[in-house]
Amino acid sequence: MRLIVAGRKDEALAARVRDLATTLPEAASPFRLSPEHRALRLRMCADPAAFDALSLDLLRHHLALDPRPPAASRPQGIRARALAILRRALWRLLGAPLERLALQQTRINELLLDALGRIARRNDGPDRTEPAAKP
């Protein structure tokens, strides 16, 4: 990695960046899925038809809604901490109905994806996408 700051090469900064990057724990990785199930694979598709087929396939890994509370952030200040406690309490209180809604929505997602898959197979043909704007 080469860095240029205000028009000048900065090797000391590059070394600092490399050192800092190594301090990042594996737990900070944004990906939870294995590489073969990641959307980034779509970049390798040969054409839009292959893209559509693979994206339907990949969507199957995202059907289920997650009703768990969001990862805890580090609220700063008394007001923010109080709000965070209130939010957690509300989440616990709503836990059961949220899980029920998530389950229903997940089933609807499964049905929708199946329907999409059937439509895609029926319409299997040349790409008809028109560009919507200048690249």
Partner: peptide, 29 residues
């Protein structure tokens, strides 16, 4: 953790690419 990524720009010029980005956002939670 108190940070936000704002991606500002038209998502109409290449809808499939915009879909890929949205999928990446979903899978990275």
């Amino acid at each position: 953790p108190r940070s936000r990524l704002i991606i500002a720009g038209s998502d109409r010029s290449c809808p499939r690419y915009a879909a890929l980005l949205r999928m990446v956002i979903v899978e990275t939670r």
